[in-house]
Design a protein around this nucleic acid. Structure first.
Lengths: 140, 140
DNA sequence: ATTTATGCAAAACTTTTGCATGGGA
DNA sequence: TCCCATGCAAAAGTTTTGCATAAAT
């Protein structure tokens, strides 16, 4: 975790305290490049600092989700969500429906679509998650 | 539920039996236009036919997900997923991050992006889920 | 007739809550 | 110092499993 992570600034600015639980969860998320299940977050946080309780981890994941830093998704089939990091409000990946591996990719022409939606639906859009489903080369 | 639902054809073709549990879950999903939590599916199925067990409902939701008929998402904040129907493999909606209402919308130019990805990543894409997050007019 | 799928009930997990206490600003 | 956030442990839910039985083909 870099001390000057933009997310840390974000927390500070929003008036949230920089607690061990929050900093540790953020560090774990960033170390995983933001593809990680809640169970894995729990395990890794526990390993880094056993003094941090489970409840705080869940509370932190909820907070980060509310702030738009991460987003829960159903990448694998278990009952635990996979959290992905939302850089600048968006995240793109292709998930192999067979092996569940994922492949991230850059923006397409989301900008035009976003603006069109804001006008049509009269909403203010802050971000999006675009998931493609398919079968990867290895599984084909 | 229409007897000749394309999904019913799909099940038959794939060799799955058309059981009460499956037909009832499908009917519930279609009645809700495919935005429904697992808890709601359980409740509505129970009301329609109390003889159908919870386990079968979950097994059916899993099966439908595997077949690409539906897709679990985190629309609301509870621990139950919201299932959306994947018509022709895709689904688009904007979710208000405040009130959690959703607004469906039609295809943008996903076709070009899809084809580009298939070439670049060497995957075979069967569908996608695109979720925009933002604040709706009422909540603004 | 053959299997596949089911219902039931219990087990396994995951997430949430209440409350006294500790730690950040 | 103040009060937000935490840890703990129990509670609340949700989903899964094993197995005998029913029902779809």
């Amino acid at each position: 975790m870099t001390a000057d992570s933009p997310h840390i600034q974000r927390l500070k600015q929003a008036g949230y305290r920089l607690t061990q639980a929050r900093l540790t969860v953020l560090a774990v998320l960033e170390a995983e490049h933001g593809h990680i299940t809640s169970a894995d977050v729990l395990e890794k946080v526990e390993r880094i600092n056993p003094a941090i309780g489970r409840a705080s981890v869940f509370r932190t994941l909820d907070l980060f989700t509310q702030l738009g830093i991460i987003r829960p998704t159903y990448v694998d089939t278990s009952l635990t969500p996979t959290y992905v990091m939302m850089h600048d409000g968006h995240h793109h990946h292709v998930i192999c429906t067979d092996c569940k591996r994922y492949f991230e990719f850059d923006d397409g022409d989301m900008e035009a679509l976003t603006q069109s939606l804001e006008k049509t639906l009269d909403v203010r859009i802050s971000g999006h998650l675009l998931e493609f489903y398919g079968v990867c080369a290895d599984c084909n």
